[in-house]
Structures are given as structure tokens and as C-alpha cells.
């Protein structure tokens, strides 16, 4: 198993205000910083921003598309929100293998994860990990 084999391909997502509004409805997070351009204009961000958990959903999608059920059963994610994601932003979500810890027949594989905008600005940084079988590596590829 090489690092290249375990690095999920990057995921590119475009944020829209309509998507933010859908996420606000489903999450119940109706904070006007996400929904009200007038209010958002009074904040340091100047305009509406995406929910942090929406971006977390993008990272989880990346890991799910690469590792399938293994991510759902054993995934761990620790992220810090570094900058706002605005409507119209094109986000690139990436995960790079950083370490492997043996668990006998399995191993916990650790990744550095990031989400950057079209200007390479940091939106989210952090770490992810999950447990994979050493033999099968529980391969799952959506792509």
C-alpha cells in the first residue's frame, strides 16, 4: 500500500447561497450570518458565509467516496475553521496520508485534511483517521 494509493482524490465543491439555505433548513441553524446579506454586511465577513458543518460534510464525503463503510464505522475528524467559505467559492478538499498505526490485522491510517478556496486560502484544516484492514485495505472507490 503506497501513500498515493491511500490518498483520496481531491473533491471540488462549489458553494452557492441556495445550498447554504438548504443546509440552514435541514440543520436548523438559521444564524443570519449565513442567510441575511444585510446582517452579514455588518460583520467582519461582509457577506454571508457557509456553515462550518457544511464544509465538514464535504470532507466526510471525500472520505466516504474513498473508504466507504470503513469511514462511517471508524472515522475520526478533528478540524479547525480558519476562514469563511463564501457563496461562489470553489473549494478543493484534500486528504493526505500522514501516518499508519498498527492494530494487528488492521491499522489506523491518519490523514492531514484541508479545504481551500480558489485563491488557495485556508478554509478548514485538520486531521482525519480511520481503521482499515491491512490485507484488503477495504478498498472502496466511487470515482
Amino acid at each position: 500500500m503506497t501513500q498515493a494509493q491511500n490518498d483520496p482524490p481531491v473533491l471540488v465543491k462549489e458553494v452557492t447561497q441556495a445550498q447554504i439555505e438548504r443546509y440552514a433548513r435541514v440543520s436548523g441553524d438559521l444564524n443570519p450570518i449565513h442567510l441575511d446579506p444585510g446582517y452579514a454586511a455588518t460583520t467582519p465577513f461582509g457577506r454571508t458565509i457557509a456553515h462550518g458543518m457544511l464544509v465538514v460534510g464535504f470532507i466526510s464525503e471525500l472520505m466516504t467516496r474513498r473508504f466507504g463503510r470503513s469511514w462511517l464505522e471508524s472515522g475520526q475528524l478533528r478540524v479547525r475553521f480558519k476562514g469563511p467559505a463564501y457563496p461562489g467559492d470553489r473549494l478543493t478538499i484534500a486528504a493526505v496520508v500522514r501516518e499508519r498505526v498498527s492494530l494487528g490485522a488492521q491499522e489506523r491510517v491518519g490523514f492531514g485534511v484541508s479545504c481551500r478556496n480558489q485563491g488557495n486560502g485556508e478554509i478548514v484544516v485538520g486531521e482525519a483517521s480511520l481503521v482499515l484492514s491491512r490485507e484488503s485495505h477495504q478498498e472502496h472507490h466511487d470515482d
Binding site: 446582517y39 462511517l72 478540524v79
Partner: peptide, 23 residues
């Protein structure tokens, strides 16, 4: 997170600093 925000009656302008999830 929704349960937390509802319970704490988080005011407008509140930001999300970090998030850890363990499935």
C-alpha cells in the same frame, strides 16, 4: 450541533471555531 445551538440559544453572529467527530 443543532441541539447545542437550540439549547444555548446562541445569538446571531456566533462562529464555529472547531469541530471533532468520532464515528
Amino acid at each position: 450541533l443543532g441541539v447545542i445551538l437550540e439549547h444555548l440559544r446562541i445569538p446571531p453572529g456566533t462562529l464555529h471555531g472547531s469541530q471533532d467527530l468520532e464515528f
